[in-house]
Design a protein around this nucleic acid. Structure first.
Lengths: 141, 141
DNA sequence: CTTACAAGCTACAGTGGGTAGAGGTTCAAG
DNA sequence: CTTGAACCTCTACCCACTGTAGCTTGTAAG
C-alpha cells in the first residue's frame, strides 16, 4: 500500500494533482488509514501512470476519461480508441501549423528590425499594422 | 466616437474582452456618455488593434504590456523590443519542437493499432506503458 | 413624442489543468 | 515518547478570456 507521496514520486505527479484527479473523478476514491490518509495499490499506480502518459501526449482530461472508460471495457471496439487518438493527432498537427505560421512572421519581423530607437522599430510597426503581414496567423490555442 | 460594439467589430474582439482589457489596465478608461456608455476614438482603435495582433502572434498579455510601454516611449531603445520578440520566437520554437515529438509518437501509436477489440489495442497499450515510447515527449504547455 | 428593442451596463461564475498556502492532524523512525 | 516529515481539508489563485443574469441607455421608426 502506497502513501500519496510515494505514488506521486513514482508517477512524477504532484500530490495536489493526484487529489485533484480524485476530486474530478478521474481516479477512484482510495482506501484510507484509520487516521484518514489515502492508501493506494498497484491498480491505482497503473491508472495514474496511464493518465500522466496521456497528458504528456497532450490528451485533454476529457479525452483521457473516455480512454479510461474504453480501457475498462475490454470487449469494446478498438475503433473508438482510434477515433480519439486520431482526433488528438489532428489537433496536434493543427497547432503545429499555426505555430509555424507564427514563427515565420516573428522571424520576418525580427529580420527587418533596424535596431535604432523605438520610434522606427519595425517590430512595433508590424504589430501596429496587421496589413503588413505576409502570412495568415492565429494562435488558436 | 465609437461605441464598444463598433470597436469590437472593427478589431475582431468580443465586447467582454475589451472590457476585460480595460479592467486589467491594458486599455485606458475611455470617455463615457451621460448615460454611462463607453465611447472610443481612433487612438483606442489603434491600441486595441495592436493588442489583438500581438495576441494572434502568441504574445502574452504581460509581454504586450511591455511592448505598449515601449511603444509609448519612442525614444527608448528598440533593443528592448527585440528582446521581447526574440523571447517570443524562442517560446514558439520550443512549442513546435514539443508538438512534433508528440506528433511522431501519436502517429507511431496509431500505425501499430490492430483495430480489433480494446483488449489488444496498441494505443491503450502504449499509453499504459511509457517505456514503450521511442521518443521523449512532454507538452510543456 | 412614444415605443420597441438592440446594445449597452455591472457583477459574478466558470473554463482547463492544475498550483500554492494556511492551519491543523497523523504516521513512523529513533 | 517525541519529533518532524508527510498527510489532511479548504480556499484562493494562475491565464485569457467567455457567458449569464438582470438591469439601463441609445436610437430609429411610426
Amino acid at each position: 500500500m502506497l502513501a500519496i507521496g510515494t505514488l506521486a514520486k513514482r508517477t512524477g505527479t504532484k500530490v495536489q494533482t493526484i487529489r485533484y484527479y480524485e476530486q474530478i473523478g478521474l481516479l477512484p476514491e482510495p482506501g484510507r488509514t484509520e487516521g484518514g490518509q489515502r492508501r493506494y495499490d498497484d491498480n491505482d499506480l497503473d491508472r495514474l501512470a496511464f493518465i500522466r502518459h496521456a497528458r504528456q501526449l497532450g490528451f485533454t482530461l476529457e479525452a483521457i476519461r473516455e480512454l479510461l472508460d474504453l480501457s475498462d471495457n475490454p470487449s469494446r471496439s478498438c475503433a473508438e480508441v482510434d477515433v480519439i487518438a486520431h482526433r488528438q493527432l489532428k489537433e496536434v498537427e493543427a497547432r503545429i501549423a499555426r505555430l509555424e505560421a507564427l514563427r515565420k512572421e516573428l522571424k520576418r519581423m525580427l529580420r527587418e528590425c533596424s535596431r535604432d530607437t523605438v520610434s522606427d522599430c519595425r517590430v512595433l510597426e508590424v504589430l501596429r499594422d496587421h496589413s503588413a503581414c505576409l502570412a495568415d496567423h492565429d494562435t488558436g490555442a
